[in-house]
Structures are given as C-alpha cells and as structure tokens.
Design a protein around this nucleic acid. Structure first.
Lengths: 330, 330
DNA sequence: TGCTTCGAATAAAGCACTTCAAGGACGGTA
DNA sequence: TACCGTCCTTGAAGTGCTTTATTCGAAGCA
C-alpha cells in the first residue's frame, strides 16, 4: 500500500509555492499563467510524479470523459469490428469506452432505482445493431444523454447506417451477371423495426433480380449457423432449386454452405452462395459477400457522438457505402 | 437541459425528512436503518426517480467500480469471446468494464504526466493474450493496481491459462488414432515469452506423435489467413507431403485449408487439417479443432481479479481444460 | 504623485456522495 | 425514579479537483 498514496494537487502546489488553483490552471489553461510560474509548477509536478485523479477531475467537471457502447456482441461478432475502429480513436482522445453487451445489459433494477445501469456515468452512448426501445429512448432523452444509433433505426437520435438497399442491389447484380435468374434469399428472423433494415436489403435485391426477369424465393432462419443449415432446406429441397442463394449475413451463408454439402451439391457449380458483412466467417468459408465498412462505422459514430456532446443538437444520418467482395462461392 | 437536472441525495433527504446520511445508509447499509424510515426513504427516492451519481459515489468511496480489460481484440477475434463471458458477470455485479485494444493502448504520454492512460481510474486490470512488459508490470505493481493475466505468462500476477500441452496432445492423439504419422505443424511467429505458450502446445503435440513413431514437421507463419496460406507451402510442396497439418489456431488452419485447395488437394482425404480455439472461423470452415473455454476464462479472470481487489495477495494460476471438437476436416 | 487598468494569483465555494464520531430517544432494570 | 445500554439518526469532515469572484501589484496615464 505504501506506493499507493497518490500525489495530490495540494502537494504540488505546496512544492511550487503557489495555490492549488494555479496548479489546476497550469494543467488546464496554461496561457493564464505566467511562464515562470508555469515552469515551476510543471517541475514540481514532474518531480512528485503527479497524476491528476480522474475520479476527482470528472467529478468536478461534471463530465465523465467516458462513453458507453452497447451492442449484441455475443450474438453478432461483427460488432467487435466496429468497436475496434472506435477504440483506436477513443484512446487518442483519452476517452474511456465502457462496453455493454446487449444481452447482459438487461436492467439490473433494484427496487429503488428503476433505471438503466448506465445512467450518470457516461458522457454519451453509442447503441449498435438493435433498435432502441421507445421507453429507453425516452429515458435517455430525459437524462439528456447524447446518443447515436449505429446500424439501427431511431426516430430520436443521430444514426450511422449502411446503404442496405444498395448492398442488396450489388449482390443481386453480381448474381444476375453470372446468369442466375432463379435465386433464393435467406432472411434472418428478427424483431421490431430492425426488420426494416433487412427489408431494405431484400428490396434492393429483389428489385435487381426482378428487373432482369428473375425470381426471388425467400426463406427465414434464426441467427445461427445451425438454424440456417436447417432453414436452407426450404430453398434447396424443392423441384426447381434456385441456382444461387443469398443470405442476410455471413453466418447464415455458412449454414447454407453446409446444407449444400449435406445434399452433395457443389458450390458454386450446383448452387452459388453469397453472404453479407465480410466478417471472419466469410474469410474462413471463402465466401463471396458484401463488405460493410465496420471500422469506419465505429469511428464515424464516435465522431457524431462527440459533436453532440459538444452541444450540437442537430440530428444527422450518415450512410456508409458497401462493396462487393468476390470469392469462391459464386 | 431542463430535464437534465439530476435528483440528488439532498432532495430525497428533504422529502423523506431525514438527513442525507440516512439516505446514504438506506442505500448502502439498509439494516442500520429502522424499517419505517427505510420505507419512507425508499418511497421518496422512487417518487423523485433518484439515481445515485456514480461519479460521486466512487469518488467518495475512493474506488472506481470499474475494471479494465486490455487485449489484442483487433488481431485475434477470440478475445471478444472471453470478454462476453466477463461482461455478463460484470453487469450483474454492477461493475463497469473499460476496454483497451492492445494496439491502441499505446501511452498517450503528456510531457508532464508520464503515466499509462489507465492509471487512477480503475480498480483492477485484466490483461489478455499478450505478455506484460516488465516496465509496465512494474508500474502496475507500484500503483498497486490489481492485475491478472489471461492466456499469458507473468511472473508477477495471477494467471488464467489453458492447458496448452494437453491441447497439443489431444490434437495429436486424434490424428494418431486416424493413422497419421507424418504430420505438419504450422506455428505462429510470435514475440517474447508468449512463445512459451505456443511451444508448450507444440511439445504436447510432438510428444504424442513421437511416441507413436511419427514425425512432426514445423513451419512458421504470421498471424493472418493470407500469411498462413503462403506459409503452408513449406509443408505441402514437398515430396513426402504430410497427411495431416495442425495449425496453432483456427485462422491459420483456414489458411492451410485454402492452400490445400489451391493445390487441388482434397480435405481430409489427401490432407487432414486441424485448428485450435474453436472460434467462428472453425464453424465456418467446418474445421476439426480444439476448443478453449473462452467465456469461462473471462469469467474466471474476473473472479480472481475481484479476489485481489478485495485484498487477497495470493498469486494464483488457474488452468482451464480444453477439449476436442471433431468436424469434417480430419 | 495619484488614479486607473489589466494580468496574475488566490481564496473559497462547489461537486454529490460516504463514513464515523457523537447525540438522542426509548425501553428496561434496579 | 434514576441510571444504562441499544438502536437510530445525524452533523460534519472528508474526497481531489474546477471555477468564479476577488485581491494584489505593477505598469500606464495624466
């Protein structure tokens, strides 16, 4: 414990023979202090190894220097990628990032404090990949906690999303150009308005295939490789089997791949398969897919959030582009 | 901003007509307060929607209620899995988890404050997957910041590791039982003493194969699918090609898989392939692999850390078990 | 020389809780 | 009735920094 005793601003002040206010000013508003004094204070701080205690700083500043990121990390590994993009920037800005898994973030509501676990500790919040429930949104609003939604719709907050419709179109165009006309589409079974994202993607897809005189057959699956493997039956076990299957995201595509193998179908000759995201699974399965700019999305979200924290009240929507990544499954 | 005004303990006290000390006691040591008073205070708190401000709480308690997790999240996706295990538990305990990517965690050292960015804000630290540099370790020690190392060696701190040697043995036994005698092993090129982990895994592997009269050929690769795909040449492009290849982890195994396909080799008939970790890539590639208990490792680490925070000075090492997962590549 | 002005330094008031020593009330006992 | 001991409750002192209003001194001006 001996070494644990922190050096406080008082000791620095004493050593530099100034008041603590001056020490504080040296650290925060150097130009308000005469060069001579400043030098003396800095020297004293260095000699004592003074490190301002964040606890106290943020307490006195009424700000946390800390933002939260909530996402379904467990369910969708892709959110980690967004997080890393954000982390790099946050570290430079000396902002701490507290992560919440959407599953585990369920309100640990004590009888007294019916509130989200995050209240009051954060300067801002980034919610990824899941719709912000109205009740929660209202609370965030009330608490005046700046929030931005990533990869999700929100009527109240700024958003960072991808062009899902275009993503669907890109994929469809790729398949169309390879001659596919009868194609399957494996949709993820989802809840609430997150769906609209999935729908947009599907619409973009259908539009292009439809325009080419093709036909899209849609099946639905839960979010897991195993579920997709089973759900693919609806697409593959029919007389006029589609010559290509697009899945809502990579993990589902992997399920389709396995289902194809179960049936002795060759990929891509008997059936072409595409995913969406270009995550780790896509690389591993050598899957043709549509790449989302994950890292950039995290970064952008942080930028937008910081703008709001600094006072901007302008709701904004940032749409990021996607692009096709060709591999061996089409 | 109107709604942003927080309810403070003073207002609750006033409404319940008690002192703030009593309110504080109701929240922290309920049994020291008479039931009647307690009820009154709780009611008042509920009516006002009182939420204690963590800033102030932890400041007054001289504790942060917050731990840090540092890991190479960007480079190895598997660390996310460990993180989720930890997150669930942390949420229940109302502990915030601040994440640092090992890459971006480089010291943002100001001229005055030569210190790690994490000092003074955390109650404890979990360092995953990378050796703790001596200089850093010494600083953590000095600052008296409880630390535990996961999946890494450390002379100073408690550790949570897997039985690498056993993992290697398991894999080897599996291949041996399938008749493989001439096998390749793709090692990851690594730095410093993290290597010892890799070495232990390899030793366990070699021992079993050796005991069966077999022979292990070792090649080295950087950490990426692409690098592994190239490095596999050293194993596959030789006269007496191994009938099986084990890779240090899944991503490398995927590289081997691709390399095999490049050469028109069938898996597992011409060459069997195994990985290690059982991450997302393993599922996607339907790879036989050795599973690490990721979630559990995160949880265990948190438990150990909490013990240290609560005062235990006992250095400990927890070894977690691994197990074989058979899929289609062997 | 006397008065103003302006920069530099400071005192002191927060910030929103925890905690501990101390005070009060009340029932029980002699 | 007087004295004790217990259990609640409270006042007040931290916690370590920011910030605002104020003071001090010296330079500038007439």
């Amino acid at each position: 414990m001996a070494a644990g005793d922190r050096v406080t601003i008082y000791e620095v002040a004493e050593r530099a023979r100034v008041s603590i206010s001056t020490v504080s000013n040296v650290l925060n508003k150097p130009d308000r202090v005469s060069p001579a004094t400043r030098a003396r204070v800095l020297a004293a701080a260095d000699e004592l190894g003074f490190v301002p205690k964040m606890q106290a700083v943020s307490f006195a500043r009424r700000a946390a220097g800390r933002i939260g990121v909530m996402a379904p990390f467990t369910s969708y590994s892709s959110y980690l990628r967004r997080l890393s993009g954000l982390l790099a920037t946050a570290a430079q800005l000396e902002i701490d990032v507290v992560v919440f898994d959407h599953e585990s973030a369920a309100l640990a509501s004590s009888p007294v404090l019916a509130s989200m676990p995050i209240h009051g500790r954060l300067d801002g919040l980034i919610v990824m990949g899941l719709p912000i429930e109205d009740a929660i949104a209202e609370r965030l609003r009330e608490r005046n906690l700046p929030t931005v939604a990533v990869d999700a719709d929100s009527a109240l907050f700024s958003r960072v999303v991808i062009d899902d419709s275009n993503g669907g179109s890109l994929a469809a165009a790729h398949l169309r150009d390879r001659g596919h006309r009868r194609v399957g589409y494996l949709l993820e079974r989802q809840v609430s308005d997150y769906e609209s994202q999935a729908i947009r993607r599907l619409s973009g897809f259908e539009q292009v295939i439809g325009a080419a005189g093709g036909d899209v057959r849609v099946a639905t699956s839960d979010n897991s490789v195993g579920a997709a493997r089973q759900a693919a039956a609806a697409l593959l076990d029919v007389a006029d089997r589609p010559s290509a299957v697009m899945a809502h995201h990579d993990a589902l595509a992997v399920g389709v791949l396995l289902a194809a193998r179960d049936r002795g179908l060759r990929v891509p000759d008997d059936v072409a398969v595409m995913g969406f995201d270009d995550g780790e699974a896509a690389t591993a399965a050598d899957l043709t897919t549509v790449r989302q700019p994950f890292e950039e999305s995290g970064n952008t979200a942080l930028g937008v959030l910081l703008g709001h924290i600094d006072g901007s009240d302008l709701r904004s929507t940032t749409v990021l582009d996607v692009r096709l990544v060709e591999r061996s499954t089409t």
